[in-house]
Design a protein around this nucleic acid. Structure first.
Lengths: 210, 210, 210, 210
DNA sequence: GATGAATGAGGCTTCATTCAT
DNA sequence: TATGAATGAAGCCTCATTCAT
């Protein structure tokens, strides 16, 4: 009479506990004991649900990437159908409200980028998340171009998307490590100016979306 | 007669050894033993020259920041006096030639950004380096504005500088973790387009500097 | 009506699973989880049928001893009634066919001898098995003496039986750890030569049984 | 001004500490902490001198094998030149005085044979020790044959040596696990009877060496 | 009887740091 | 200054055992 497996939730619970710890102490600094404590479970249980600490990291990155993708979709929804508005919403979703919203998630994100340097699987997941964002931008750009809102050369769309993703990612780093460098509230606007330039947005539309 | 102190060189030697290790294994992964080995000295000597591992990190960040500042100055020198050319040189110094040049330094830089999350002193040094770069941009912008090459509003210069620094920093992260996202050679050009937009560069000058 | 208990089979099944694991990884190396897997049952069930891992070991040793006793009886049966033939059969049962037959059982046997060093109950069971074999030899010797086939002094029978058991046991160890030391096929013959010497077998009979 | 390295002694000290623990609790049961305690050093030092616990085992087996070889040479020395006496001394060295002398060494020896089952390097060292003993016997036999003291067929010498080694090894196991099976004092005599039979010793000489 | 999750102790190993020389 | 040994605190992981279902 087996109990229904709760492995899935437990894994998520543990992965979230890692994220919480990682935000404060980094990946190495997040000990299995601390993770277990944060998850309110016994230390030994962690390795019942995960082969190794690295597996927890992978699960955590997966969670982070999912959260990220969902957040984007949620925030883009209201602007659906209007490329310029979608672009603006995309930028705001990342940079409005305190240049990066949740500082804990921000710290995690930067930690993960560091781990991605040394772990191919982490890199793959991390790059996948960024690529998802870039593709979203590309889709917006294509549609805008079709509708005549953008006048970006077809060939430059990928480069423009990468540039925007890079800028956002860079603002994340700055927000977490050198916040005083960013004039308050400037991140989204500067990115918007930059993005509309890259996408060839007419200045009329640009001002309207401000 | 006591032998002349070689502490200064030793410290640099050890800090460089940390950087080498950090690029491959991260800060936590760089053990004192490995650092000593990379510096070709005995493990015990490390703590003769440094109070703690953290002190080595601080020295290493200092080195990294100095290298960085020097590199910028060196690469901006030929363009001295021409704001638009300086801006272009600034961007190229960071993003030309393989989007980030030395992959080892790139990895270190990202590692350091991660450590900066948790260590105020590291953060200060890291932020200082970024601020130095931003100030250089501000100086270029001011001069360009004075000379009429740029038409950027005085109030927006700081924001523009931060945006450019953010973009560069973001490209670093992408180059190290999701290189496939960046169309080869596009980083400098896209940043240039973006920067000239933010600085209000006339399109004539913009094309000329291409 | 409660379902009929299957504890007995389960216990044997688990004990056999321990033996399988023990042959490959030793007693300590045989984890409850691995034992359960080898027995195709859930890990938790193991401790329903056994108080502790040590109990499984005791049951396994019991099984091993029984298998051993049965094997001897089976192989001695054809020679029943002829002391010299029985002696020969006894030796061959242990040392013919690859100096120790089943390598897995051989490994288990040696493992058990190691555990016997530290566990009185294991020692008792292990010694019991050896003693059974020795007594079988003594019985053969006594009968042979009575029938005039052997001329071993009454007092020396126990010593001779112990010597033969020791030799066999020693060949087991050699077969498992230093097989190259044993000229192929020599174990049974050498033991036979030795045993017939100890038992005072006439050289005529000795050759006949070759 | 480096201190002279004491690594060699430390390694031996640690290996001996393992042997002491292994005799009582087996290899797995000998924890690094217990080994360190037995060696009167800090736990961390163990892994400064050894890569892993397994390396300690290898060093310990080496020690054991050396001790063994030395012991044989020492005990054979008085009989040098007289093959029959050497053979007798060889047997007595192993089996006289309490059937196996030092019970701790005996337990270690059996433990090692168990580890040899699963570790090729241990097996090699263990087999090497046994082979050394066997070769010593072969040398004795050859000389005895040349001098006409033994009448063992040339081809059977290796088999005879293996048989004697096996018997001794088997007595070790019995002495450690089923001592009651061995009539006190019978081991050396029975082995002598057996060995002289295998080596074709004339009964006159045989009795003389008793 | 059976399942699989849960517990917590303990083991091996790594490592920053200290120390005697 | 320099060396290499020494220390002791964690850390990750394994595992026997227990428990709720």
């Amino acid at each position: 009479m087996p109990r229904p497996s709760n492995t899935a939730e437990r894994r998520a619970q543990i992965a979230r506990a890692l994220l919480k710890n990682m935000a404060e102490r980094g990946y190495e600094g997040a000990s299995i004991g601390a993770i277990a404590a944060a998850a309110h479970i016994a230390p030994g249980l962690v390795h019942y649900h995960f082969e190794s600490k690295r597996e927890i990291l992978l699960a955590a990155v997966e969670l982070l990437a999912q959260d990220y993708a969902h957040r984007i979709e949620r925030q883009l929804a209201p602007a659906a159908g209007d490329p310029a508005a979608e672009l603006r919403a995309f930028i705001d979703a990342h940079l409005r409200t305190g240049e990066g919203a949740d500082p804990s998630a921000l710290a995690c994100w930067i930690c993960v980028s560091g781990e991605a340097l040394r772990d191919a699987d982490v890199r793959k997941a991390f790059a996948g998340a960024l690529e998802g964002a870039a593709q979203r931008l590309v889709a917006i750009a294509r549609r805008g171009a079709r509708e005549g809102v953008f006048s970006c050369a077809r060939a430059d769309v990928d480069a423009a998307a990468a540039a925007i993703v890079a800028t956002i990612q860079g603002y994340f780093v700055l927000a977490a490590t050198a916040r005083e460098l960013i004039p308050p509230g400037s991140a989204a606007d500067a990115t918007w100016a930059m993005a509309s330039g890259l996408f060839g947005l007419s200045s009329t539309t640009r001002e309207a979306s401000r």
